[in-house]
Every structure is written in structure tokens, then in C-alpha cells.
Amino acid sequence: MSEQARMKFFCDTNRCIECFGCSVACAEAHELPVSISRRKVITMNKGVEGKEVSTSIACMHCTDAPCAQVCPVKCFYIREDGIVLHDKNKCIGCGYCLYACPFGAPQFPRDGAFGTKGAMDKCTMCAGGPEETNSAAERHLYGQNRIAEGKVPICAAMCATNALLVGDAEEVSAIYRQRVTSRGKGGA
């Protein structure tokens, strides 16, 4: 591969069965507080036969991440592989990233005095943060760093129907393309 891989999530809506497994696995793996849900399962056209579609969304790790563009303290950084991460020790909890985000990914724990907003929390694609890799500090602030251990992010790893895909954008789209073209061509 000549170009650096760009890590992306993709959820195959033909496979997602709204089991919430990804969301629960994420919350458990990273020991998130109750108020935070980095990954969400959403269902459109609920109850409409033939039209009901479910998908799983979290931070989309945008190439031109608008959150990083608006941050007044520049706490975001984009890894070479395209994973968008942020430094919770720099974050001031102002909420600008939320206003800029198209997907509602940034969330804010109310853990300060008088319930003020704390440092922002969002999906890290299981890649931790700027602290020393797999250190206690990194785990405490961002959860597991599975990428550093060579593992797939927990949400995709546990997806029972393989609906949630993660990896280099080219490879993810190749898998999906293959799924689409092979559809209806099975049989004996």
C-alpha cells in the first residue's frame, strides 16, 4: 500500500439488527459513566414494515474534522491513520466541538462543581489518548487502547452480524462492495 491507511467506521444497515451490543460493549470496555454513550444504535422509520433501518453511530473520525477546527484550545489531534483524538487535560469543556459536529459525537460529563461541564468525551476508535500508551492515566481518561495492542475496536470486534466494520477506508469499502455485488447471487 503506497498511501497511509485512513481508519474509518462503516455500519452495514442490511446487517444491523439493533441489538445494542456495540454500545454496551463500548461502555463496558472503557468503563464509561452512565451519562456517556460513545456509540449509539439508532433506528429510522420505526415500525414501518420494510422501511425500518438501524445503524450504529459514534465519532466518524472525519478527514476535515470540524471539531478540531473550532477548538479554542487546540486540544484535538489527528493521527496519521486518520483517527481523531483529543487531549482531555487541555480540553476546557466549552462545548464548541459539539456545535461543530454533524453527528452529535462529543459529550460532556457533568462532574464539575455545581454540575459544570467537564472535559469532553467521545469515541477514540479504541486508540486512547496522548498519554503514555496503555498507561493507567490513559486508561482512566480514555479507556482501552486496543489499537496499540493490535486489536480491532471493541464495538466492531463484538458485532455478531459483522454489520459494523472498521479499518482502512479502502478495505472497508471493498468488503461492502463485495457484499452488495454478491447479494442475491447465492444458491446451490
Binding site: 477548538c71 479554542p72 484550545v73 487546540k74 487531549d87 487535560n89 487541555k90 480540553c91 476546557i92
Partner: peptide, 12 residues
């Protein structure tokens, strides 16, 4: 101008 102050505790 938080970025020139390094963010973190001071700006918070």
C-alpha cells in the same frame, strides 16, 4: 485565545 495559553486548568 485559549490556545496561546495552552488550554487546560488555567483556561478551564
Amino acid at each position: 485565545f485559549g490556545r496561546y495559553l495552552g488550554g487546560g486548568t488555567l483556561v478551564e
